[in-house]
Design a protein around this nucleic acid. Structure first.
Lengths: 344, 344
DNA sequence: CTGAAAGCGCTAACAT
DNA sequence: ATGTTAGCGCTTTCAG
């Protein structure tokens, strides 16, 4: 078993003081060129690596970023994490992952754990339950402790932190308009419960598009998928609702606020021998793997998770490195883009 | 901005020594009951939290686990990470994520970074390029430094560490047998290049099943998907190859070593108006979201990523907590299970 | 029962 | 040019 060598050991070995070693390794001109070189050579030969824990204790910096997300097994979030990890490591930061599982309590715990791990900053997307509870004390407290926070996607506007969001409402409006332009007037909306602001904004965009085109919204054509313990359960709820509506209403298009909803809808349509996009066309948010591999493949609104992760990380690092003023907060808005595939 | 209070500050405030405070907070019987209570009350009132960095420096333990994976945006790996994070946090460990992107160089760097972060142990799945290079010095060195490593899925047998794998060969054999039992004799195999041991084992299982049934393997019926810069590029390679084969050979079943291969194959078959499973049936490894939402949905061999992550984490934690002998290494084999869906 | 002091590995201000 | 020392926050041994 190979032990790491310390400054002290090097000092002892070469009969110099610890600070001489420390300064030499920093190439300080305080130290004579030959002792300096000798020490550097010795350190290299013994593969000296500074102990980051000791440095952290001294500097009060861990060069670590904490990330709290509602779930990992989810195309959008995994893209964002990937991007966060990439930018972080390029800038010498490590990434600690914490998952809230959409639970308020877990999210609060996560924040504590990360604060105790002395992460330098946090990037997070808020859990559904937290949005429902409208309780953000844990985020406020973290910010009050001087830990910078960057929120992405699921965001609360009155928190003192940077934010990265998507033009949800506008994108939803445009997607709906695309369907209307294709002469579809009976558009079913598959969305989440009201307190999920992202879903809400998309619903608003949908409604605005209808209004702009003088289409009277039919509340029966909006399915708000209830939160359940498992996404399995949520999907069967959605499928049941959809089957009911198909029997009672004429529908010629579906807008889904994420690809799981749209993918499930597609299954129901197939089961009922409804041809997509001839009879019903579909557009969905989340440009993930389901959209690409389903058949017909789904037209989607891409939220550009990669860009969101990148922007969020850069905002945070700028704050950590002092490039940005600590008390100034930006909100970056990423533009969604519509990716046309077979379903519309 | 709220500062964390330290032992020193508490001591100063209450006119006692630091060690009295430290002992009191540990409820040491050395300290008189009333000073003890007074100190505990004061600490609580001021929301004292020990500084984990200082503890790490002292204990040489960070209570952090490093995870190195080839990619995050991938159903199997994201499931495993999720599970690792879950078990870790239940046991008071943080998880640092590092992504190798299938690159050897990046993987070596990742290991260094994690070692420098003084993680207590590492859970990893080896990058393709590393498997190709057959260079595992970085893993050996990490182990030599006394950092326990647990490998999962993509594993090298002669490393001194715990391993969690899947009965790939057997599962592949059984899947192939299932197809043969359904009277399919011309089975196309979609696999990865030889040096990916997982793909290799699955190929072996396929070949054994053929042999057991006296079917002469046809090398034209094995597509080894070449590694490319992007999975996009790999898929178009696969699709081109498959189209060619469909023209020249009779095929009545496809076995894919992962669901991306199988999903892409499904698209090609659709394009050529071949009906699945009537004309060609499909079974695929990786029970992910593509399999569930494609149509027809894919029968899959589930590798139980959740269980793999759980076992790997438990093996590591057992080693870290001294429950297991440091120099004894286990290999756990998870049994795959076949999930029947519409494609077979 | 309480406190002083050393030490984990490192830095930096301050001697010499 | 090199060394001494204090200190980051904590634990723990040893003294009082």
């Amino acid at each position: 078993m190979i032990k790491r060598i310390t400054l002290k050991e090097i000092a002892l070995e070469l009969n110099v003081s610890i600070s001489t070693v420390s300064k030499s390794l920093k190439d300080s001109h305080e130290i004579g060129i030959e002792t300096r070189e000798k020490i550097k050579a010795f350190a290299k030969a013994h593969n000296y690596k500074p102990n980051n824990i000791a440095l952290s204790l001294k500097n009060r910096k861990t060069k670590t970023i904490g990330v709290i997300i509602p779930e990992i097994v989810h195309h959008f979030f995994s893209i964002v994490i990937n991007s966060i990890e990439k930018i972080s490591s390029e800038n010498g930061y490590n990434v600690i992952i914490a998952v809230s599982n959409e639970s308020f309590e877990k999210e609060v715990l996560n924040m504590e754990t990360l604060a105790n791990a002395h992460i330098d900053g946090i990037i997070m997307s808020i859990a559904k339950e937290t949005l429902k509870n409208q309780d953000f004390h844990h985020i406020r407290e973290t910010i009050d402790m001087g830990i910078p926070v960057v929120l992405f996607d699921r965001v609360i506007s009155d928190l003192k932190c940077d934010k990265v969001i998507v033009n949800d409402k506008q994108a939803s409006k445009e997607a709906t308009q695309t369907l209307i332009d294709d002469n579809r007037k009976n558009i079913l909306l598959l969305t989440s419960e009201d307190y999920v602001n992202v879903g809400n904004l998309r619903t608003e965009g949908y409604l605005e598009a209808l209004k702009d085109n003088n289409i009277v919204p039919d509340s029966d054509l909006i399915i708000k998928v209830k939160d359940k313990k498992s996404s399995q359960a949520e999907m069967s709820f959605l499928e049941d609702e959809l089957e009911k509506i198909l029997k009672s209403k004429k529908i010629d298009a579906i807008l889904g606020v994420n690809e799981i909803y749209a993918g499930s809808a597609l299954k129901v349509l197939k089961k009922n021998n409804i041809i997509v996009p001839d009879e019903i066309s579909i557009i969905s948010f989340t440009d993930g793997v389901i959209s690409r591999y389903s058949s017909p493949s789904l037209s989607t609104v891409s939220q550009h998770g990669e860009i969101m992760g990148e922007r969020a990380t850069k905002l945070l690092i700028d704050k950590l490195t002092g490039k940005t003023d600590i008390s100034e907060f930006k909100t970056e808005i990423i533009k969604c883009s519509l990716i046309k595939r077979e379903s519309s």
